[in-house]
């Protein structure tokens, strides 16, 4: 809990700097944080049994909405991700970030662990359907997060190592198929740019180069809050959203980064601890998956900003500016809290 608040504070300070000291931006972010916190606390009060029961319906509704997006979706920024319900527009893919691990955890925990090969296959199918639907939108970042959230459940459930190796091999065999048949031109471009950013310094390699300059020039101590030239002079694109880590690194340096990563590690360790002490298999798997997916956010975002991974649209959790992913993340933590507190209640009885 303390960790989360610390992260949000870091986020607000960095957004303030990255967004050109715009208080209106901060105001909107605080409102979003407030809404997300309310969602978290409400979800923390819901009994675990309820989560277990609604998993399948939640999942089915999510899939239907994804199909809805495919057919009636609203275009935004060149991708079809939004569903317009008249009064509100939202991304069903966000729902799936929670629905997929819940569904797989529910399905796998019906039988004893470790799961049978057949159940694992079915589990994979539960993961694959939404992943492909979202990849088609196209939203590579989210589909990656959803795929990993489902796979973590299977891994934590004790899927045998042989199978893990096999799946790994299949996945790498699938990569060229993706490249030639599924990926759009701009996605290929991103990967090519990642491999050689200097090839097109004013075009698509620009993000990565400028971001690395920002991080590198920050040095050990950083340039100081509001002093980062890269971000203040607007050389950095997407400063307050996906590339906020570069702003943070420039202004707070390696020390700042170590502090930030320590907070993330603390949250992940606590999350896994909650998972281990949870009362039953469903809770364990769900809590573990939520925690590890949180880590994937961190890893993919920092990896892409620092040039280790290609650019996919994944925000830095709880720090980046933006509403939808914030709500989903804190909703996940709400479930985590529910698992943690209700365990304690039971053990006292």
């Amino acid at each position: 809990m303390l960790g989360l608040i610390a992260l949000m504070a870091v986020g607000l300070a960095t957004i303030y700097s990255a967004g050109g000291q715009d208080l209106a931006l901060i105001q909107r972010q605080i409102i979003r944080l407030g809404v997300a916190m309310v969602v978290m606390f409400v979800l923390a009060q819901v009994p675990i049994l309820a989560y277990q029961r609604v998993s399948i319906y939640f999942y089915i509704v999510g899939i239907l909405m994804l199909l809805g997006v495919l057919f009636f979706g609203v275009m935004g920024k060149g991708a079809q991700r939004w569903l317009d319900l008249g009064f509100v527009r939202f991304q069903p893919s966000e729902i799936m970030k929670l629905a997929v691990p819940m569904m797989v955890a529910w399905y796998i925990s019906r039988d004893n662990l470790p799961p049978k090969v057949l159940n694992i296959c079915i589990g994979f199918a539960f993961v694959a359907v939404p992943t492909l639907l979202i990849a088609k939108q196209p939203d590579l970042g989210t589909s990656l997060l959803i795929a990993s959230s489902g796979v973590f459940v299977l891994f934590l459930a004790g899927m045998s190592w042989n199978l893990i190796l096999l799946v790994g091999a299949l996945a790498s065999a699938f990569a060229p198929v993706m490249w030639f048949f599924l990926m759009k031109e701009y996605q290929k471009q991103r990967v090519l740019t990642f491999l050689n950013p200097e090839s097109d310094p004013l075009g698509s390699g620009y993000h990565i180069i400028q971001s690395k300059i920002a991080i590198g020039s920050g040095g050990v101590e950083g340039k100081g809050w509001l002093q980062g030239t890269q971000s203040q002079l607007e050389f950095l694109p997407e400063r307050h959203t996906d590339f906020i880590f570069a702003v943070f690194s420039e202004e707070f340096g390696l020390f700042g980064i170590l502090g930030l990563l320590a907070i993330y590690c603390y949250i992940i360790v606590v999350g896994l601890f909650i998972a281990m002490r949870a009362q039953d298999a469903f809770c364990k798997l769900l809590a573990g998956s939520i925690t590890l997916t949180f880590f994937v956010y961190v890893f993919v975002n920092i990896g892409m900003v620092s040039g280790l991974l290609p650019v996919v649209g994944v925000p830095l959790p709880l720090v980046s500016y933006g509403g939808t992913s914030m709500v989903t993340l804190l909703a996940g933590f709400g479930i985590l809290m529910a698992i943690s507190t209700q365990k304690r209640l039971l053990s006292r009885q």
Binding site: I213, G216, S217, T229, F235, L254, I302, G307
Partner: peptide, 24 residues
Amino acid sequence: LLVSNLYYLQVERHEDYQTRSNGN
């Protein structure tokens, strides 16, 4: 892995990027 990459960027190649940032 992340930290070592960041260490590489911020400490090992700090001067290089510092120059590029100024040149920016």
